[in-house]
Amino acid sequence: MSIDRETARKVASLARIRVPDDRLDALAGEFNAILSFVEQLREVDVDGVAPMTSVTPMRLPRRDDVVTEGGQADAVLANAPEAREGFFAVPKVVE
């Protein structure tokens, strides 16, 4: 499976990273180098092997469904590049 320029463009768009057109071929080349390295995984017989989901065998703990540390809007917004009237501010989303 080889990645071409168009696939590289699509992946960059899915990852929400703007890549200039003149970088796409180089990017596709880097993807192909990494993917051909991981291609080796196809040699492994994985029949009947379950994908690993938990590093150490433990049941995910549950907690009560309650607010633990609420009421801190100012702290939440303190690092926002732009905040207005208690909200994060972004460019207009709906036309």
């Binding site: 499976m1 990852a15 993917l35 995984l41 196809r42 492994v44 092997v49 690993m52």
Partner: peptide, 22 residues
């Protein structure tokens, strides 16, 4: 971007699930 690719529809099983089995 590599991560986005290996998780994308059509490649998830071939890459991500296989890697988790290995």
């Amino acid at each position: 971007m590599v991560g986005t690719y290996v998780l994308s529809a059509g490649f998830y099983d071939a890459y991500y699930n296989r890697a988790r089995k290995v």
